[in-house]
Design a protein around this nucleic acid. Structure first.
Lengths: 250, 250
DNA sequence: ACGCACATGAACTCAACAGTTCAGTTCAGG
DNA sequence: CCTGAACTGAACTGTTGAGTTCATGTGCGT
């Protein structure tokens, strides 16, 4: 919508598996007016031990939720976390709240930044096709190689109807975060005259559509595109995009 | 993969809502060797009354499953169908089996045929862009206007992990059915020289990606693209596709 | 009009699971 | 080392929902 907003909000890479995550303050998102005031509203136990427990719970819950969906029992999560069920409830209040917390925590935008990086570091004379293809390749690889990224998206998609709050979380951390990034990158290319983009909103969608949506869609139904096809899809996709939006062929 | 297979397999339009469906033989799919032999394997009650009941159950179950997912209780379904719960079990054996049956029944390929139709009725001199755009528009409209089409896809995506048999059903009735259709249409256009398609597999995916995947993806997360955007997406998508695959601009 | 397969409904079993209670234990911080 | 907040384990409540049983109708086919 509006231009010149801050991109590059969350470059926190979402490594997962190894729990080497700094974990700042979990609920320190951007907007959310009405949260800065109370501050003590419904925060769980405090202290060093509590922090450890909390993290253990989130880690275990993330793993189990990603694997089995919302249907895992709280007992399982507690067991996996090496923690009493009561502790889970002391910390999060309800299963839903825990779920939302897990998704919030895991949902940092790993997409789109790649493109921004590629475009930012693009000198005047560099080959646009190569740059974008590389970025796209990295982007797709990230999606495909880290099963958790797709698993998380599918999880949110699957359970959104059961946990309505997910909608909000998703909108805030998903599209709203990296959509402006990619959008801004395209705008930058348009501004410097390397692309001609009459309808930026459509162009961004098409970029997604050509490069990542196939993976999202197929993974949603449990199948997976093989490496060779993914590669052809990426290069041809960028080709097609540039053929349409670049003023003249290089 | 192989060319010159039969397209136009299932042109049974999936109207829904009005239950004016002829309902032939529900399990009369194409391949499925090992089904023609036994024939009496696990078929439920027979007779006129039974058939009525069975249909009522499927209709009710479809409505409820599409609305609320797999979580509706069998009692609800029975009530909605005006039928005893025992009858449901007499007919289908288990909730899962009923679910699979419902999906099988509802899953006819409404996609792709449009394209085939447009291409088939294309005279030598006709404008390709207009024809494909019209087909695409109809296609997208069908997806967007009939909530059940998307609901069904989302349902399958959501519950596939709980009902593994869905994978098979999906593969048989989904991609495997209309993918060849669209694929064949493209092949036909390539054969008559109106398009130049080096990598047909990729081209089909790109056609899907540009035209329908955005709708699938966004609907999976509960949002919806507005009409104007959908229209721009369609026309620009076809444009882009043709710009890349048509030998020379008309 | 007769009989039997099919349908009913109401009560029942069984299991799982969210969330709670509580008496007792652990650990971090002062 | 002492105190209290935080944790534990285990038992408990309450609900929900799948699938079953059975005694009693009801309608289709002949």
């Amino acid at each position: 919508m509006n231009s010149t907003v801050q991109f590059r909000c969350g470059t926190r890479l979402l490594i997962m598996g190894t729990n080497a995550r700094e974990h700042g303050h979990p609920a320190e998102h951007v907007g959310d007016a009405g949260d800065a005031a109370g501050a003590t509203a419904r925060r769980g136990p405090a202290g060093a031990r509590a922090e450890r427990k909390r993290e253990a719970i989130i880690t275990a819950a993330r793993a189990l939720f990603l694997r089995d969906g919302f249907d895992v029992s709280v007992d399982q999560i507690a067991a996996e976390a090496g923690v009493s069920k009561v502790t889970v409830y002391n910390h999060f209040g309800s299963k839903q709240a825990l779920f939302v917390e897990v998704v919030k925590d895991a949902m940092d935008a790993p997409l789109g930044d790649t493109l921004v990086g590629a475009v930012d570091g693009l000198a005047e004379g560099d080959d646009l096709r190569t740059a974008i293809t590389d970025a796209a390749r990295a982007w797709v690889r990230r999606i495909r190689s880290d099963p958790d990224v797709l698993a998380l998206r599918n999880l949110v998609a699957r359970e959104a109807h059961r946990v309505p709050e997910l909608h909000a979380v998703w909108r805030e951390s998903g599209p709203q975060l990296h959509h402006p990034a990619a959008s801004g990158a395209l705008a930058e290319l348009a501004a410097t005259g390397r692309l001609t983009i009459p309808d930026p909103e459509v162009a961004v969608l098409q970029l997604y559509a050509l490069l990542v949506f196939p993976h999202l869609v197929f993974s949603a139904y449990g199948t997976e595109l093989d490496d060779a096809l993914a590669e052809r899809l990426t290069t041809t996709g960028v080709d097609m995009f540039l053929a349409y939006y670049a003023p003249e062929p290089p």
